[in-house]
Amino acid sequence: MIHTPPSKDAVRGHGPSRRLILAALLAAPAGPVLARAAPVVTVLGDSITAGYGLPAASALPAQLQAELARRGRQVVVRGAGVSGDTTGGGLARLDFSVQDDTRVCVVALGGNDLLRGLDPKTTEANLTRIVSRLKARRMAVVLAAIRAPRAAGAGYAQAFDAAFAHVARTQGVTLAPDMLAGVAGVADLNQRDGIHPNARGAQIVARNLAPAVIRALG
């Protein structure tokens, strides 16, 4: 067999075939195109967030993720609810419960403050500290308000309700004005205790929260 010696250009690495290969490599992407990761929405809350009495698929985090998907927003909703937690409890575990990859944190606390008759000034102070610490971590915040029943006393109810609006205004965050609107006090939408939403009730709570979460996502 006769072997043809390589040309000088080929030996030096400047042959036409090598130039074509280099051009093709430079034109190609450096690596595989990765899909953008879905933003994480964390719900910092109490037993309603934790899904008391409900399977995970029917609890508020799953319902909120499904509701946002129906509205064209693909996100991962992560529940960070602890049954019985007050705003003080949420503040104490904030750094542990809300992970750094969170883009929007829904602060859904205050119901147990109300049940225990805590001073609305204490609730407001705790919420202010929670929101300010989340903002310092460059997270958008949705403050989910709980409305006090008139049975709590007109003065107390007014002060409690005003705390959420005041924190949202002074901290410059999105307010969901009444997360339990249409659910609180409606027997068919709550479990036997009359406090915790059933699956249908949790779906309505998710609908109440979704517009504020979408605004916070931007």
Rank of each mutant, 00 (worst) to 15 (best):
Pro120Cys: 09
Asp113Val: 04
Leu115Val: 09
Leu109Arg: 01
Asp119Glu: 06
Thr86Glu: 02
Thr128Asn: 11
Cys105Arg: 07
Ala125Asp: 10
Gly111Glu: 00
Gly89Tyr: 13
Ser83Asn: 15
Arg116Val: 02
Thr87Gly: 01
Asp101Ser: 02
Asp119Gly: 04
Cys105Pro: 08
Cys105Leu: 15
Gly88Cys: 13
Asp101Arg: 02
Leu109Met: 06
Gly89Trp: 10
Pro120Tyr: 10
Gly88Ala: 15
Val107Ser: 05
Ala125Tyr: 12
Arg78Phe: 05
Leu109Ile: 07
Asp119Met: 04
Ala125Trp: 13
Cys105Trp: 06
Leu118Val: 10
Ala125Glu: 12
Glu124Phe: 11
Thr87Asp: 03
Thr122Gln: 10
Asn112Glu: 02
Gly89Ala: 06
Leu91Glu: 08
Thr102Arg: 05
Gly81Arg: 07
Gly88Phe: 14
Gly110Phe: 04
Val104Cys: 08
Leu115Ser: 12
Phe96Tyr: 15
Gly111Tyr: 00
Gly89Ile: 09
Gly88Leu: 13
Ala80Gln: 03
Gly79Tyr: 05
Ser97Asp: 15
Arg93Ala: 11
Asp119Tyr: 05
Asn112Val: 03
Val106Trp: 03
Ala92Asn: 09
Leu118Trp: 10
Leu94Tyr: 15
Arg116Met: 08
Val104His: 08
Cys105Asp: 11
Gly117Ala: 05
Gly81Ala: 12
Glu124Thr: 08
Glu124Ser: 08
Asp101Phe: 06
Ser83Phe: 14
Ser97Arg: 12
Gly81Asp: 12
Arg93Ser: 07
Gln99Val: 06
Asp100Gly: 13
Val131Met: 09
